[in-house]
Design a protein around this nucleic acid. Structure first.
Lengths: 212, 212, 212, 212
DNA sequence: AATGAATGAGATTTCATTCAT
DNA sequence: GATGAATGAAATCTCATTCAT
């Protein structure tokens, strides 16, 4: 996932190249995802990652920093993928579908991560929410761009308020995934994508729309 | 544990008639809403309610029980109001509008409560989420009934899957309120109702629909 | 040591009337005096006081607060005694002798306390030193008054700079007690008082001075 | 652990010739002087010295050893200087003045070092205090010799008890420097020397004494 | 000799809950 | 019913020291 420079310099500062950094993050997703933030002592995460408690603090400033870092990596991945996949895609409906698909795929294939983002991440204080907001912003921007593109193309109605629309899109995805994970992730989340998209586009009234 | 006279018997249900019960709940909404669940020690809630710490445990089994009880009262109020207001209302679109309005009014006029339900209530463990689900169920049922009514009347498309649709409706409302409260509740939440409903009904494509 | 009001109101706020407050302070003097501040975990102090760890925090804001409180009580006792004993005492030399005597008696009869003030209290950070300084100030003021009285009476030379003189008096006492405690408190500290006073008054040159 | 060539043998004593040894000591004086012993992690000292954490342990047994070593170097410097400067100096008063001057100059020109010796060095446990005592002893001996010389010359009164007198001298210097450093080292410490000496010699009574 | 990542023991502090009054 | 002092378990985080490289 990371290109290494030829001369492998490894300081803790370059944490992201470090396998321990990854190990701790993965352990945290798993432990927090299953037990919840406040039932996930550092000692448990460290044990799961196979490192000593103190080692965690070589890679993360504090426990909150782990939470934030997981989100940053997750959103980063999603935004990177979307950046590529939306590249050159003109059809707004197709864009929307990609938007939903990438989100659903990222979380739908990793229930621990889904549990983490949909449930436990919400256990945050005011300061963390500020950081979370900053991290999510690029994702919101992508949604906004898809909306704008749709309006410009005349496929989405021009009466749409960007913020309200974004909340409908995000809220619908969010609630769908939350319901899926809270009922035990028993069905295939991805199979819902067509209906979710159709509902977003056509609304309750179910206007017919055509895919080019 | 000892003999009760009939008159003196008090069940938890009857405690609801007690003003201390109300005082503690209101104090909890305020303190938890502003400080967060984990920054809201029982002692703080008790002080705000004007009772002793121990008194809280005469009315609630434990701290989680307070959280659950607040939600139960809140959802109960909403469901009761909707039960009345939807009575004899035939137009599905009008029903949807009432659905959104009652929800937005309940939370939009009480930021502490909105903060509580949209943010801090999410700090729950598996067992609590089960209870939360049970409490919310009647509200979901009402949503489902409105959807069914709309399909039956031919106003909502019959292609709709009830669960997915419900999540779209709930997710959109939820995200809208969360965004409102997290940005400081600076604008009038109720003024968004028309656009939110229009978006739910017409979707991104914005099909025209008529109010009878 | 404390006069109680007739109606015994006991809140934690009125900590000083509380025997647990005293018990913790005494335990802290003993444990810190013998083991040192950084080898005296709260758990050890609590056990010595016969209370639970958490109880300590009902009476003291934090560990530093214990340190500060001990000093406050100690200096308070000394200052109170001096306030009484110097009352109406005109002879500056006699005043000086009382000054030394009260200090030596307070610490000389309580090696744990002496160890605490002379050795372990010094383990403080900048903020604590500020507080310590404030607490000691009244004692310094008393020394200054004795010096002033002596100069006015013509018994002490008028060439004296008040601050330097005070440091000579305090430094001499301090060093004497420190040496006594660090060598195991094996001899009678009080028996040194005459020589210490004579040295302070006559200096190395040993001028003869008369006691009235 | 392996065969050393004669040339390469290094004992700890010889390590003193090593510039890293000096660098670490100087860094420790600075860091501990400014932050305090317990806020001065080895890592901070190492960084200031420009070496790795582990390197510190090639030159010092442990953290306490650094503390002890700083004191040893400091006292060593003072004792060496005094050994030279008192050589052939007959006048006891002049000797006393040199005593004070060398001490004040050593610390008065290096606030970090003064902070170290006057404040942070006191954060020691029983075993360290023993070592500290051993290190300071030669300095005490010098003081004792000056006192003896003064008595012999009839300049200091023969009623003086050597130990008490030494404590008066040392305590006065110590307290003067401590007060200076704790009030921010804002004035010139050296300018106090004449008054301090006059006070030591003439005492509060201020007997006139003559400098030959 | 030098490095610095890793360790893990240990300490302070909070707070839900109990129970004697 | 009401009180609130007392409890003690539990969790985060720091940092002296080690040791493989």
């Amino acid at each position: 996932m990371n290109g290494h420079s030829f001369i492998e310099v490894r300081t803790i500062a370059q944490k992201k190249n470090n396998e321990k950094y990854e190990a701790i993050l993965n352990a945290a997703v798993k432990v927090i995802g299953q037990a919840g933030y406040h039932n996930a002592p550092i000692s448990k995460i460290a044990r799961e990652a196979g490192v000593a408690d103190g080692t965690v603090y070589l890679y993360f400033k504090n426990k909150e920093d782990i939470l934030i870092s997981i989100l940053r990596e997750t959103i980063g991945t999603i935004v990177d993928r979307l950046g590529e996949e939306l590249q050159g895609l003109e059809d707004p409906v197709a864009c929307l579908k990609r938007l939903v698909t990438v989100y659903f795929e990222t979380l739908g294939t990793n229930p621990d991560l889904a549990m983490f983002t949909q449930v436990h991440l919400r256990q945050s204080n005011a300061e963390m929410r500020k950081q979370i907001g900053d991290i999510i912003k690029p994702y919101y921007t992508i949604i906004d761009e898809v909306i704008a593109k749709g309006i410009e193309a005349g496929v989405f109605t021009e009466r749409l308020d960007a913020r309200i629309t974004r909340r409908m899109i995000f809220g619908t995805m969010d609630e769908t995934i939350t319901a899926w994970i809270l009922t035990g992730a028993k069905y295939d989340l991805l199979s819902l994508i067509p209906q979710v998209c159709e509902l977003m586009i056509g609304g309750l009234a179910g206007q017919i729309h055509s895919h080019k």
